[in-house]
């Protein structure tokens, strides 16, 4: 009971942080999972669950008007259930669908916010600026709190035992299947990233990074430094090329004529 309340409070504070006040990226599974681990006294297990979840949700972000998978909700439930005793793989397998299903709840909240918007219009028309501020700051957080009381609290309260009971009848290939999916799913996050960057002529840089890491014992920091160098070089030559007013083929075609 106490644990379920604590987790619900953490989930709510972090959701407020990521949506209403701040956006310091504490909702990322790597951070939110660790916070759950600190609260429940098992950081090691929490991080063990948080890392694969982080990889899966790396590319999950709200671009423009899109509502991303709720990585925070998934991470909170996954880590707390793992700490309360279910297998790490199973916790991950549960967390991922939760994050995707939560999207529909978040879409509902953002739709309700539209009505709040109209209310705020009326407040400005009536010159009630003080109430406008209050409404802006409190309505959406209140909806998030309600959502978490309805979703997070029962999931953690009944969770581990209910999940364990279901688990005992699950054949082992399903558990290892989720484990395998966990190794493949980061590709989905990366695919989403590539899709959103969407600049085809820059794709060779992805291959350069891939080949470097596949053949050399290079760290991410090393590659980041190289990447900055690539970026500066690219910018220099791209700008130079544009200043010349022509395409890159000019020199070559001049040579060909000789």
């Amino acid at each position: 009971m106490t644990e379920a309340i604590i987790i619900t409070i953490i989930a709510t504070l972090l959701a407020w942080e990521s949506q209403s006040f701040g956006q310091f990226q504490m909702h990322n599974p790597l951070v939110s999972g660790t916070i759950v681990g600190l609260a429940l006294g098992d950081v090691k297990t929490a991080i063990e669950v948080a890392i694969p979840l982080q990889l899966i949700f790396m590319g999950a972000m709200g671009i423009g008007a899109s509502t991303p998978p709720d990585a925070l909700l998934g991470a909170i439930l996954g880590t707390s259930l793992a700490i309360k005793g279910i297998e790490v793989e199973t916790a991950i397998a549960l967390a991922v669908p939760v994050a995707f299903v939560a999207v529909s709840l978040n879409t509902l909240i953002r739709t309700i916010n539209t009505f709040t918007m109209h209310y705020m219009d009326r407040l400005i028309a009536k010159e009630n600026y003080k109430l406008f501020n209050i409404v802006h700051l409190t309505f959406n957080p209140a909806l998030i709190l309600i959502r978490n009381i309805l979703v997070v609290f029962p999931a953690v309260y009944y969770g581990a035992e209910a999940v364990q009971a279901v688990l005992d009848v699950i054949p082992p290939f399903i558990i290892s299947g989720f484990n395998v999916a966990g190794k493949m799913l980061p590709a989905l996050g990366f695919g989403m990233l590539i899709n959103m960057i969407g600049i085809p002529h820059l794709m060779p840089f992805l291959f350069i990074g891939f080949i470097l890491a596949s053949y050399l014992p290079i760290t991410l920091i090393g590659v980041s430094v190289l990447g900055v160098a690539f970026a500066l070089l690219y910018d220099y030559f791209a700008t130079k090329l544009k200043a010349k007013g022509g395409g890159g083929g000019d020199d070559l075609s001049a040579l060909m004529k000789d």
Binding site: L55, M58, V180, K183, M184, P186, A187, F190, L193, I194, I197, I199, L202, M203, F205, L206, F207, I208, G209, F210, I211, L212, A213, S214, I218, L220, V223, S224, L226, G227, V228, F230, A231, L232, Y234, D235, A238
Partner: peptide, 21 residues
């Protein structure tokens, strides 16, 4: 574009290190 160059290079590394079948 310059930021995307850096982003894609790092992405290539992460695909190699973090995805597997």
């Amino acid at each position: 574009e310059a930021a995307s160059v850096l982003g894609l290079t790092v992405l290539g590394v992460m695909i190699a290190q973090m995805v597997s079948i």
